[in-house]
Simulated assay, not measured.
Amino acid sequence: MSTSAAPSVVIVSPSLAQANNGNWRTAYRWSRFLGGHCRTRIVTEWTGEPCDLLIALHARRSAASLARHAAETPDAPRVLVLTGTDLYRDLPFDESARRSIQLASRLVVLQEAAVGQLPEDRRPHCVVIYQSAPRLAPAPTPRQRLRVVQVGHLRDEKDPLTFMLAAQRLGDRSDIRFEQIGEALDEMQRIAAQACAQTQPNYRWLGGMAHHLVRQRMRRAQVLVNSSRMEGGAQVIVEAVQCGTAVLASRVDGNVGMLGAGYDGYFELGDDVALARLIERCRDEPTFLAHLRGQGQQRSSLFEPDEERRHVLHLVHSLLSPFSR
């Protein structure tokens, strides 16, 4: 334990602010929650600097930091926050990811369905902490058209092609507009988005945007689509719910763990036909759109910043004692 009155916490995030992705936003929120209680730093790798607690995001990409911390300070606590690629891609096959979950004092997952992906012996060491976002007042619903948005960098894990194909299927619906937000991290995804924008007047690819602008786009949309192949706990779902935007989501564990098993806005992974039908229902059946919004609001208490902050502080307090309050 350091001699300073406030414990020191290092947060290892594989991505920093310039990446503008979920890992960074989680690290940044947690550092703000801990402000006034701990001295915090966000780094891409732990290189041996003294700290009372290490919090690492991503089992595989932060494996070296966790291993070094365990070797050099075996009695110090370590927290591992598990991502979607950890849970649904890396853990079954990657030895470094499996090693990371054994080295962690506590494991954190971001939605309730994720606990079942862990080895049974590690589940008692796991806590669920939902991500959060401040509430925004919903924008007025336009009568002329439905605005549908997808948010996330264009890469295979997010399956942006399903969104584009749904836009093409609804190309004759001038009363439905599609907006895709996110940088292309794959050249084939870039080509596909550019081609869709050139041939489909109802589709726009807006590229990367600052987070506050993305939230306003999301707020003004009536529907957010999350078509991901894997999710640890999608921040975009949190942000959509917190501004009253209905969500249509692929039926994968990460999305079901966020929205609940009884949610009525799921489509099967990669099924652009089913997605297009749900989007049409949102436009043609106002009661269905209102129903999805209502179901989202039933989950909104999980996504409040005060709730996430309470869980983060409780986690850190349980690992550091005495704890500067």
Rank of each mutant, 00 (worst) to 15 (best):
D75L: 07
F33C: 13
F93W: 10
P92L: 11
L57V: 15
V109D: 03
D52H: 01
V79I: 12
Y88R: 06
S132M: 01
T44H: 07
A133F: 09
T85V: 10
R122C: 08
A63R: 01
R25E: 04
T44S: 13
A64V: 01
G35F: 14
E49R: 02
L54V: 04
I55S: 00
S132H: 04
E120R: 14
R106G: 10
C51F: 08
T85M: 10
L53K: 08
N20R: 13
S100Y: 09
T40A: 03
R60K: 11
V43K: 00
S65M: 05
L82V: 10
P124Y: 07
D52R: 04
V81T: 09
E112D: 14
Y28K: 11
V115Y: 08
R32T: 15
Y130T: 04
W46T: 00
H69L: 08
C51A: 13
A70Y: 06
W30K: 01
V79Y: 11
S65H: 00
R39K: 10
R39Y: 09
L103D: 14
Y28L: 06
R135H: 15
V115N: 11
A97G: 09
T73Q: 11
D94W: 07
S65D: 01
N20S: 10
Y88P: 03
A97I: 08
A114W: 00
R61Q: 11
I55R: 00
L34E: 09
T83D: 05
A27P: 07
R61L: 13
R99S: 14
T44Q: 13
R29P: 00
L54E: 03
V108H: 09
L107G: 06
P124I: 11
A70H: 12
P77A: 12
I42P: 01
T83C: 07
A17E: 15
R122V: 14
Y28H: 15
P124A: 04
G116D: 13
A113P: 04
A70C: 14
E112C: 14
A64M: 03
P134M: 11
C126S: 15
A97M: 07
H37A: 15
L53E: 15
L91F: 12
E120P: 06
G48V: 03
A64N: 00
A76G: 05
A17N: 05
N21H: 01
I55C: 01
E112R: 12
Y28N: 12
A64G: 02
Y130R: 03
Q111F: 05
R25P: 01
A113K: 14
G35V: 11
V128M: 07
R25V: 00
D90K: 05
P50V: 03
G35R: 12
R123P: 05
V115D: 15
Y28T: 05
R106L: 04
S62T: 11
R68I: 06
R99W: 08
A27T: 02
Q131P: 11
R60F: 07
P74E: 09
R68P: 06
G36Q: 06
L80A: 03
A76I: 01
N23Y: 02
Y130M: 15
A59Y: 15
C38K: 06
E72R: 11
